[in-house]
């Protein structure tokens, strides 16, 4: 029957290329191979997970979450007003402004990050500018600040759009009703607009925090060769050091942490996975 076979290709594909690889990572996380990867020791081991919690690595994990958090907060502080402004412009300009926000998102992610390499370098455009107006040059590249800047730059639109979507859908009559009851603008914002926009904020935060915490491109390009966030650590384990077990443990911890933050945030999110991107 035609109807019965419709989702079979999908099921087959997902199981083979989504589920099984994931299971493989879990498998590697809990096993070791002291004699090389082709001879995996199948006994259960917590060694890899324990290694994640060693101070050296915990430092890296914490740093990743810390920077991601800073970047997220900055995105929120910068993005919310922008979303608010766009939601309150006339229909005609709204579409244009939304497109303007979306275009950078669709530019190649690497090129956008690469651009900052050009700007932030010792002889980069920014320092050129500072030099031009007589200020001393700054060393931003290869510091935490550069990485955070890269994160904010790349993910800002992902914060703006969900908030904008929620604000746009908000019923204007609620504001009218509040005004009718005597509320001032600041009260209206604090007690009505902001609380109602929380689902959008939650959406935006999850779309910024997760990629920021797990990035390895931004930290690699803007942080330099020695700069390590979780993403770089995982890449290093798999590509250069070859300790797949430890790499898998790191990945699992990363996934678990992100899952937990998603679940917590989902409690605040009323929307059912709206694709507010388009």
């Amino acid at each position: 029957m035609f109807g019965k076979i419709l989702d079979k290709p999908f099921i087959f594909w997902s199981v083979l290329f989504t589920l099984i690889p994931l299971c493989l990572i879990v498998f590697f996380c809990f096993t070791t191979s002291p004699f090389g990867l082709d001879q995996v020791d199948y006994s259960f081991s917590l060694e890899n997970l324990q290694k994640v919690f060693e101070p050296m690595y915990m430092k890296i994990m914490l740093k990743s979450f810390q920077l991601a958090l800073i970047a997220t907060v900055i995105c929120l502080l910068l993005g919310y007003p922008l979303a608010y402004k766009i939601a309150n412009t006339s229909m005609k300009w709204q579409q244009v402004m939304v497109m303007l926000v979306v275009v950078p998102m669709w530019m190649n992610f690497l090129l956008r990050t690469y651009a900052w390499l050009l700007i932030l370098g010792t002889n980069g455009y920014f320092n050129m500018f500072l030099d031009f107006i007589g200020l001393p040059k700054i060393e931003i590249l290869f510091t935490d600040a550069a990485v955070v800047l890269g994160m904010v730059y790349n993910f800002l639109p992902f914060m703006v759009l969900p908030i904008f979507t929620v604000l746009r859908k908000m019923d204007n009559k609620l504001v009218d009703a509040a005004r009718d009851l005597g509320a001032t603008d600041s009260v209206i914002f604090r007690r009505i607009i902001f609380p109602l926009s929380i689902p959008g904020i939650v959406s935006g935060v999850s779309m910024v925090f997760m990629p920021a915490a797990s990035t390895f491109v931004i930290s690699s390009l803007l942080g330099g060769g020695q700069y390590m966030l979780i993403g770089n650590l995982i890449e290093e384990q798999f590509m250069r050091i070859g300790d797949w077990h430890f790499g898998s443990a790191l990945s699992i911890i990363l996934m678990v942490f992100i899952l937990i933050s998603m679940i917590i945030m989902n409690k605040y999110d009323s929307d059912e996975g709206s694709s507010g991107l388009w």
Binding site: D7, F10, I11, S14, V15, F17, T18, L19, I20, P21, L22, L24, I25, F28, L37, D38, M210, P211, A213, S214, F216, G231, I234, E235, F238, W244, G247, S248, S251, L254, M255, I258, L259, M262, G273
Partner: peptide, 29 residues
Amino acid sequence: LLTINKIPMMSPDIVTAIALMSFFIYINQ
């Protein structure tokens, strides 16, 4: 099934990437 569908979207890029890579290399071996 709907949850499985969401997994690639919900996972960090790098985790999906190394999962697939490990899978390919492992099967290849």
